[in-house]
Design a protein around this nucleic acid. Sequence first.
DNA 1: CATTATGGGAAGCTACACTATCCATAACGA
DNA 2: TCGTTATGGATAGTGTAGCTTCCCATAATG
Lengths: 212, 212
Amino acid sequence: MRMAELSRESGVAVATIKYYQREGLLPPGELTSPNQARYDMTHVRRLKLVRALLDTGGLSIASVREVLAAIDGKHTSTHDLLGLALHRFPIAGPRDSAEGATWAMARIEELFGARGWELEPGSPLVGALAGVLCTLREVGHEWVLDALDNYAGAAELVAGADIDALARRGSTDAIVEGAIVGTVLGDALLTTLRHIAHTEVSRRRFAGDGQR
Amino acid sequence: MRMAELSRESGVAVATIKYYQREGLLPPGELTSPNQARYDMTHVRRLKLVRALLDTGGLSIASVREVLAAIDGKHTSTHDLLGLALHRFPIAGPRDSAEGATWAMARIEELFGARGWELEPGSPLVGALAGVLCTLREVGHEWVLDALDNYAGAAELVAGADIDALARRGSTDAIVEGAIVGTVLGDALLTTLRHIAHTEVSRRRFAGDGQR
DNA sequence: CATTATGGGAAGCTACACTATCCATAACGA
DNA sequence: TCGTTATGGATAGTGTAGCTTCCCATAATG
C-alpha cells in the first residue's frame, strides 16, 4: 500500500499524513528505495486512532504524541498502564486563592473518606478535581456539589465496568491501547450520554407541565 | 467600581476585559460620561463565569457567547432551558460511512429501549452519540460498548441528581444559569472523577499484584 | 518515454485568544 | 490649578495550533 491508498483507506489527506509523520504520530513506511515507501494496515489503524483522539477525544497533537508514545513504550503492570493513560489531560487547574484550595481539599477528603478512596494529595488528578471545585465555588454554584457523591458513585460505576471490560482483553498490547481509548473516548461517550439523560430526566420530570 | 478594580476583583487583565466586551461576553459598564464607565458585582460575576466556561469548561469564545445569550434571553419552561444548555457543544460527529451510521443507530435504539428513553432520531445529541459509537468501532474498540448500559446508567444517575439539585434553586434566573454551569462544569467534574475512579478501582483490583 | 505518483522538506495559511499601542478625555493628588 | 495617572474605545500586532501548498528529484506506470 502506498500513500494514495493509505489516504483513501484512512480518510486522511495526503498532506496531513505527511504532517503527522513529521510530528511523530505515524511511523514511517517501510522503504523500498531511498524515496519510496510501503504502508500496511497498522498504518491505517494508527491513523484512525489519531483522528479519533484528535476529533472525538479533543486532544492536541502534542497530547496524542505522548499518548502514542505510552502505547508504543514498554509496559509494566496493568495498574501503571491505567496511570499512564490518565496523566496527560489539560483539565484547567484552579486559579487558586489559597483558601479556596484548602476548602476544596477539605471537601475532597470528605468525599474520599465516604467512598473509601485512597487520597494521594500530590496527584495531578486530585489537583484537577480541586480546580473544578474551586471554579464551581468562584462562579457561585457550590450547590452542584450537593450531587458530588452521586457523581463519584457514577464515576465508580463506569470505572468498574471499564476495568472489567479491559481485563477481558487478551494481549497486553490490547490492554494498553484499550486503556487509552477507553479513557479518552469514554469521556466523550459519558458526557454525551449525560447530556441525553438530562433531556430525558427533565422531560420525564416536567412532562406536560409547560410552565415549569 | 472602574476598570482597574474590576480587573483586580476578577483576576482578568484589563486588555482581556476590553476584548471580552468587544466580543459581547461582558455588557458595557454604566456610562458616567462619554468616556468613563462604572462596573459592579454583576460584571465581576460574569467575568468569573466566562473564565470558568473557557478554562474549566473548555468552550470557545463563540460558544461562550451563545451560552451567555441563552442565559440572558427570555425563558419558557424549565425543560426547554435544559435543552438550550445542551445544544452548543462541539462533540465531533461521525465520519460516517452510511453503514456505520445504521449500525450505530441500531445500537442506540437497543440502548434506549432497555432504558425506556425516548428516541428523537433528529436530535444533535443522538447524532453526537452515534458519532462516538462509530469512532469506537472504527478504531476497533467496540468492546468498550460492553459497558454501554453502565455508562447510560451512570449518566442517568448524575442527570437525576443534577435535575434535583437544580429544581431546589429559587428563581428562574438561578435555574437557567445553574443549568448551563451544571452542564458545562459538570462534564469536567464527572470526567475528572472518572479518571480518579479508574486509578482507584484498578489499584483495588490489582492490589499487590505487580505483574498484572 | 511521456505521464503520474511519491517521499521529503520548507514556507504559507487560517482561526483563535489574546496583547500592545494610541489617543482624547477624565479623575486624582500635591 | 496643573501635572500625572487612569479610562474607554479603537486598531493593529503576537503567538500558537493544525493543517495546506508548493517544490523537487526520483520512481512507478501505461
